[in-house]
């Protein structure tokens, strides 16, 4: 069980981790632009219901609230894992990563159910431009979360087998950036899609 102080990082590797962090941050900025384009498209097409279901018909405040709670909690639990990481407590890291995974997986489960239900009642993405935009925007976010879940599993594996080495820790920090970024996108999603749709 090594503490952060035992994690000797030579200057060259420290530079490398800085570069990777900056590079990953730039990727997140490009991802933000992708979401910005999806949001702009949604706003342009939210009225294009083609005589079909409108936002009020397809959104549920309760489910949106539940999804929000799950994701927000998972961001917090990831933070707890990050604290455990900096203290070098391996089993705590594993525990809180696992909890984060469960919360994130529950989010995906709810969202999957939401999509499946809509498609079953004829409100799938092929119904109208509005629904195409909705499914793509929220679905792209869900896809990112799913990738994050796979990444959490990979990191659980790495922490388990390799311990809290410097490369593992640096990957965990980038995963944290990704996970928190996705929560920010979700804040914009409920503020632009769900809440205005139900007002």
């Amino acid at each position: 069980m090594s503490s952060i102080a035992d994690m000797t990082i030579n200057p060259r590797d420290a530079e490398r981790y800085e570069e990777k962090d900056f590079g990953f941050w730039l990727y997140l900025m490009s991802d933000a632009v992708i979401f910005a384009c999806l949001f702009a498209t949604y706003l342009v097409m939210v009225g294009n219901t083609a005589g079909g279901p409108t936002p009020k018909d397809v959104f549920s405040l309760d489910r949106a609230a539940a999804e929000t709670a799950l994701l927000l909690l998972s961001s917090t639990t990831f933070g707890v894992a990050a604290v455990a990481l900096s203290a070098g407590e391996r089993s705590k890291v594993l525990l809180w990563l696992a909890i984060t995974f469960l919360l994130g997986a529950s989010f995906i489960f709810l969202e999957f159910g939401e999509f499946r239900g809509l498609i079953a009642e004829g409100a799938g993405p092929e119904r109208s431009g509005f629904l195409s935009a909705f499914f793509t925007l929220v679905g792209t976010h869900g896809l990112h979360v799913s990738v994050g879940l796979v990444w959490i599993l990979v990191m659980i594996g790495q922490v388990f087998f390799k311990g809290l080495t410097a490369p593992v820790a640096s990957r965990l920090m980038r995963l944290g950036l990704f996970w928190h970024f996705l929560d920010i996108i979700w804040v914009v999603i409920f503020s632009v899609v769900y809440l205005p749709g139900l007002v």
Binding site: I4, I9, D21, A82, S86, A87, A169, S170, M173
Partner: peptide, 9 residues
């Protein structure tokens, strides 16, 4: 070391 690794959380 400025990378996020050594920051006490």
């Amino acid at each position: 070391i400025k990378s996020g690794l050594q920051i006490e959380r």
